[in-house]
Every structure is written in structure tokens, then in C-alpha cells.
């Protein structure tokens, strides 16, 4: 009973937090409203006994929002915290899309013929979930992650306008390297 109330309470926080993202008038508040929403979702996942998934959700989302706030402020060029600004744009189209999506999903929930539970949940639901998600596709998953990392690194390398020739000179012999902001290892 108590945990039911807590579950629904946390769910409400998640929804209200998500809505607040569009209602508040500053980038920082929007970002951290989203973080709050994610933390609430993480707590809900804890109630589903997916402890690992729930805690990891909280961890990753708080970290991500802390960094995202920096980018939001950076790219939305605005006096920090000063200028109240609207978090929404293209209002009419957005509302239409949101309502339509909600209706489709809600209709789906109501109309799908949900199967009844067969058997009982396994002792370790986290492991069961992991196996159900990627058991037979483990090789694909294992390949994808290094590819993703390589993509990120390659993207950064291509985007950086300074190359090793800028750092070490044309014959790559200049030491210490010529950096606008020298690092702490001294390479």
C-alpha cells in the first residue's frame, strides 16, 4: 500500500518535472527540471526491482544534465540567469504533435491485447532483463560500443582546427608543444 502510494507519487513528480521543462523561463531551471524528472523515473524503476537500472538511470542522468546545462547556456547565448526566456517554440505545431502522439500511445495501451503473466518473475530480474534484451545479440552489442567510441573520437579529431603540426611544429619536433592552454602532464 505504502509503496503503491510512493510509486504513484514519484510518477507524478516525473510527469510534473517533465512539464516544468517547458513552463519555466530559464535554461538552468529547464535542465534541472528534466534532471528531476529523470531522477523520479529512476526511483520508479527501483520500485520495479530493477535496482541496477534505476540507480544507473539516476547516476547517468544527473551527470548528463550537469553537463547539458553548460551546453544549453553556452549555445542559447543569453546572460546567465538574467534574461527570462521562453522554453517553447512553434507552439501550435508542437501542441498538435504532442496531443496526437499522446492519443496514439494511449489508444495503443488500451487496445493492445496484453498477454497474461505466465510463470513467475525470476529471482534476478535485472539479469533476466539483460538477457532478454541482448542475450542473442551480445556480439552485436560488443561490436557497437567500440564503433561508437571511435565515432566520437573521430568526430572530435575532425572538428578540432588544431592539428599535431600546430602543436609540435612542421617537423613534429617542437617540445614542449605549443598549446593555447597547456595541460598538466606536459606532453
Amino acid at each position: 500500500m505504502l509503496s503503491d502510494i510512493a510509486f504513484w507519487g514519484v510518477g507524478l513528480v516525473a510527469v510534473v518535472g517533465g512539464a516544468a521543462v517547458f513552463y519555466v523561463d530559464s535554461m538552468a531551471r529547464a535542465t534541472y527540471a528534466l534532471a528531476l524528472s529523470f531522477v523520479a523515473v529512476g526511483l520508479q524503476v527501483l520500485f520495479l526491482q530493477q535496482n541496477y537500472v534505476g540507480v544507473v538511470t539516476i547516476l547517468m542522468m544527473v551527470m548528463e544534465m550537469a553537463i547539458m546545462a553548460v551546453y544549453m547556456v553556452m549555445f542559447m547565448g543569453m546572460n546567465p540567469a538574467l534574461m527570462p526566456m521562453s522554453m517553447v517554440h512553434s507552439n501550435k505545431a508542437a501542441i498538435a504533435a504532442a496531443v496526437a502522439t499522446f492519443l496514439v500511445l494511449a489508444a495503443g495501451i488500451l487496445m493492445v491485447d496484453w498477454p497474461t503473466r505466465r510463470g513467475s518473475p525470476p529471482a534476478d530480474v535485472t539479469m533476466a532483463l539483460g538477457e532478454a534484451l541482448m542475450g542473442p545479440k551480445m556480439l552485436v552489442m560488443a561490436v557497437i560500443s567500440p564503433v561508437m567510441v571511435a565515432t566520437i573520437v573521430a568526430g572530435v579529431v575532425l572538428a578540432a582546427h588544431r592539428t599535431r603540426y600546430d602543436r609540435f611544429g612542421d617537423d613534429l619536433k617542437q617540445r614542449p608543444a605549443d598549446d593555447p592552454q597547456p595541460g598538466g602532464v606536459g606532453r
Partner: peptide, 15 residues
């Protein structure tokens, strides 16, 4: 998953 819990809490400090 207490270890992860601790880790999640220390990330809170960032925010």
C-alpha cells in the same frame, strides 16, 4: 547495488 547508489550520490555533487 549499494556501490552504484554511492556513485550516483557523488555525481549529485556535480549538479
Amino acid at each position: 547495488v549499494g556501490v552504484m547508489w554511492f556513485n550516483a550520490m557523488d555525481v549529485m555533487v556535480w549538479a
